[in-house]
Design a binder for these strands. Structure first.
Length: 423
DNA sequence: TCTGGGGTCCTAATACTT
DNA sequence: TCTGAAGTATTAGGACCC
């Protein structure tokens, strides 16, 4: 569901088509991206909707589009667009609620196909991944384009999902190429033609250039990747910062040293939710609603930590107010935790210190500074008294009950009268 | 148009340690 | 004992990605 920059006519020669296979020598990096992934998964069980615009989106008044099939995109609908705006553009579309567990399940199956070909698979999200196939070509007896074609066939045969593939020597270019291959295609950019491919593209095609950076670069008179490549590094460093300046200058000149890395550990785990209606924090009911949500989020984060066998030492909360300004507060504990009770207590304390009566739109909880739960832990004062382990035992028992009887089976008393949101 | 939820990374200020 | 410098950790905010 990445940025979908259409393939300009001048680049038609990069596309794999009937009778045309661009030179793929030296192209060891593949970027594979499922086409309209969530919508495509939903359509597998609803073939009658295949020729209609289909949009996957939450049902809440503040939901955004998660995925739209290509028929819906013709009306200007795209992911992350508010549902209200999508309904104005395409009222006749079929709107489907997301089936989250199903997408991870299909994603696992697709990633397994990739791993049959090479161990160097780096998933970026549920629907896309980088593969380094350079070491596997000899063993497989295939060229990079053969591998791309094989993957597309197998993913479609086993999961009825179409995907697009970018083939190049470096990650950034493979990623751009897969965007241009969409829908349902392969684009190959050989090392000798990287500059020719990149330079006419707009600066927004660079990885790391969003709305703000685009504005900054435009102010310098830079409109294309060629412009960025020709700008002295010192000037870029000065105007957009050292790290970003160096990063963009390298990419614009076709340099991307980042390797494909499998199994990179999580750096943080969190959960957040936007209220359907802003919650006033200057009255007890509003504050109670927010604090109950903090408990629910703490439970979710702790359960995720435990299921992944990890713990976090820094608890952070995020509060977005009605005017969309956002603050974060963080507190580092004496030792890492995966206990909801402890996360919640820390989050509540920070929340009470941070707010002074504003209406609240969103609340979030996140754990950072993750470490393996199997690592020996320094005992905190509370743990030494035997309190945290007792809470942990209770929460682990609840995990087991939920696994057996469903997510609604076990909930904290303070959440009992609440509708069963994604706990 | 009115902006979700899951993340990563960078920068700058400040606090702490040596 | 005090002070300053340098290095490291923590905190907050923001931009960006899908």
């Amino acid at each position: 569901m990445g940025r979908n920059t259409a393939l300009p006519a001048r680049l038609a020669g990069f596309r794999v088509a009937d009778g045309v296979t661009p030179d793929d020598a030296g192209c060891g990096v593949l970027h594979i991206d499922m086409d309209a992934f969530f919508a495509a998964v939903e359509l597998r069980t609803r073939p009658e909707l295949v020729h209609k615009p289909v949009i996957v989106a939450g049902a809440g008044p503040r939901s955004v589009v998660l995925s739209a099939n290509y028929l819906a995109r013709e009306y200007g609908v795209h992911s992350a667009m508010p549902v209200g705006a999508a309904r104005k553009l395409c009222p006749q579309a079929i709107y489907l609620p997301p089936t989250r567990g199903l997408y991870s399940q299909v994603s696992k199956g697709v990633m397994a196909i990739f791993r049959e070909l090479t161990p160097l698979v780096e998933p970026l999200s549920l629907d896309e991944a980088f593969l380094d196939v350079s070491g596997a070509l000899k063993r497989l007896g295939m060229t990079p384009v053969d591998v791309a074609a094989h993957i597309r066939e197998k993913v479609f045969a086993e999961h009825q999902i179409k995907c697009s593939v970018g083939v190049s020597a470096i990650k950034f270019v493979a990623k751009l190429a897969s965007g241009m291959a969409k829908p349902d295609g392969i684009v190959v950019v050989p090392p000798s033609r990287v500059v020719e491919f990149l330079h006419p593209l707009p600066i927004s095609a660079l990885w790391g250039v969003g709305k703000r950076t685009e504005e900054n670069l435009r102010r310098l008179g830079l409109l294309t990747i060629a412009d960025v490549a020709a700008t002295p590094l010192s000037q870029l460093r000065r105007s957009i910062g050292v790290a970003l300046g160096e990063h963009l200058h390298a990419l614009a000149n076709g340099r991307d040293e980042r390797r494909v890395v499998s199994d990179s550990p999580d750096k943080s785990i969190g959960a957040e939710m936007t209220f359907d209606v802003d919650q006033p924090s200057d009255n007890p009911e509003g504050r109670e609603t927010v604090e109950r949500e903090l408990l629910r989020l703490s439970e979710r984060v702790a359960a995720t930590l435990r299921s992944k066998g990890t713990r976090g030492r820094t608890v952070s909360i995020k509060v977005r107010f009605a005017d969309f300004t956002t603050i974060t507060r963080a507190r580092t504990l004496a030792s890492a935790t995966d206990v909801a009770h402890q996360i919640h207590a820390t989050a509540i304390a920070m929340f009470k210190e941070a707010i002074s009566g504003e209406a609240i739109r969103l609340i979030g909880v996140r754990l950072e500074g993750l470490s393996d739960a199997a690592e020996p832990e320094q005992l905190s004062f509370e743990a030494e008294l035997g309190q945290t382990p007792r809470w942990r035992d209770a929460e682990v028992a609840a995990d087991i009950a939920r696994l057996k009887f469903g997510t609604a089976a076990v909930r904290p008393a303070s959440l009992l009268n609440q509708p069963n949101r994604r706990t």
